[in-house]
Computed example of a mutant assay.
Amino acid sequence: MGENNNIFINLSDVINNTIEGILVIEEGFIKNINHSLLEILGYENKEELIDKLATGILIPTSKEKFIKYNEKLFQEISLITKDGNIIPVIIKIKNVQYKDKEYKMVFILDLSELKEKEKMVIRQSKLSAMGEMLSMIAHQWRQPLSTISTMITRIKLKNEINKLDKIFLDTILNDINKYIQYMSTTIDDFRNFFTIDSKKELITLNEIVIITHKMLEKTFLSQNIKIEIKDKKLSKLNLPKNELIQIILNILNNSKDAILEKNIENPLISISFNQNKKEQKIFIEDNAGGIDENIISKIFNPYFSTKNKKNGSGLGLYICKNILEKDNLGDIFVENKKNGVLFTIIINKN
C-alpha cells in the first residue's frame, strides 16, 4: 500500500469498529474506507474503491437536504451499492490535515432501517386513528342515508297509490344520485388519507385545511364545536398532502378532546394563515383553556400523553413534529394564549 492508503493507520482499529461508515477523500478521490461502509456498499475489500472517484458511490440530492438526528443537523444523500441499489444515508463532513495534505473525512450513517421504522410508526399512528375516522364517516353518512331512505319511502307511497309520475321520479332519483356521489367522495377522502405512500403534489395549505375540515365537520358540529377558517390567498407548494392532513387532524382532535373534557361553553377553534418569502404558516387556536405550563414543553416528546384516562398513545404530536422535520419540510410550535392554546405549523417554501 502507498502512503495515502495508510492515512490514520494508528486509528484503524477504532475506525473499522464504528457503527458509521467512514470515507477519507482527497481531491474527490477515495483514499480510505472502513469496514462498516464496505458492508453497507456490498464490497469485499477496500482495494475495489481506493483511488476511485467518491461520486461513484455518493449521490447528492438535486438540492441540499438536511435532517435532524439526535438534535444535530446532518446532510441527507444516497449511496449506490455494488449491486446498484440506492440507500438513504446522512453524512457529516470534516476537513482534516495530514502531512501537509488536505483530506475530507465523511461520516456516513445508513438510514434504511430508520426510514422503515419511521414509516411503521407513522402507519401505526394512522391506524390508531382509524376508529375515530370510522366515527367521522358515520357522521358524514348519517344525514344523506336518512334522506335517501325518506326519498325511497316517498317513491313507494306514490307507487302504491298510482301517482308515481315521470317528473317526480326523475327529480327524486337525481337527488338520490347527488347524495350517493357525496358519500362516494367522502369515502375517497378517507381512503386517500390511509394510503401508505404519500406523494407530493402541487397544492395550497388552504386546500389541505379545507379537506381536513370536511373530514371533521359533521363530528364537530354534532358536539357544538365551531371551526372558523380565516382564509388568505397562499401560493401553491409541492407538499405531502396526506401527512399534512394527518398533522392538522391530530391538532384539531386534541383541541376537541380538551374542549369536551373541560366542558367549554361556546367552543371555538380558529384557523388562519400567513406567508412571507421563506415560509407559510398555519395558526390553529382554540379556547379550551391551554396546557399546563409544567408540561407544555414535553408535548412533542415520544410517548408523552395527557390523555391517560383515554389511553392516548402519546405518539400523535411527536409524529407531527417528526413529519415536519424529517425532510426539512418545516416545524411546529405551541404556546398558551389568553383563552387556550395556539399551534403554529411552519412550512418552508424551498
Rank of each mutant, 00 (worst) to 15 (best):
E217T: 11
I50K: 06
N242K: 10
V96N: 08
K277Q: 12
I295Y: 02
N301F: 07
I172L: 04
F194T: 13
G330F: 01
M1P: 15
D165R: 11
E27T: 11
N301H: 08
S125N: 15
N350D: 14
T344D: 05
L202G: 03
R191I: 13
K230N: 11
E76N: 10
I196R: 08
I295E: 06
E76S: 12
G56D: 15
E243K: 10
Q280V: 06
E76M: 09
Y179P: 02
L79Y: 04
N10G: 13
N192M: 13
I15E: 08
F220V: 09
L173W: 04
K262S: 03
L244H: 01
I227W: 05
I86C: 07
Q223W: 02
Q223L: 10
A129F: 07
T212N: 07
K326D: 10
S125K: 10
H35Q: 14
N6A: 10
I203K: 06
V209N: 07
G21A: 01
L11V: 09
W141D: 10
I87R: 04
L145H: 00
K236A: 14
E44F: 09
I271D: 00
I247R: 03
N263L: 07
E261C: 03
E325I: 05
I93G: 04
L237K: 02
K326G: 03
I284M: 06
M130P: 00
T185R: 12
I187Y: 08
L173V: 08
A288N: 00
E201Q: 12
N238I: 07
L73K: 10
N162L: 15
F29A: 01
I25M: 06
E102H: 14
Y98D: 15
M133E: 06
N274F: 02
S272F: 00
I180K: 07
G84W: 00
E335G: 09
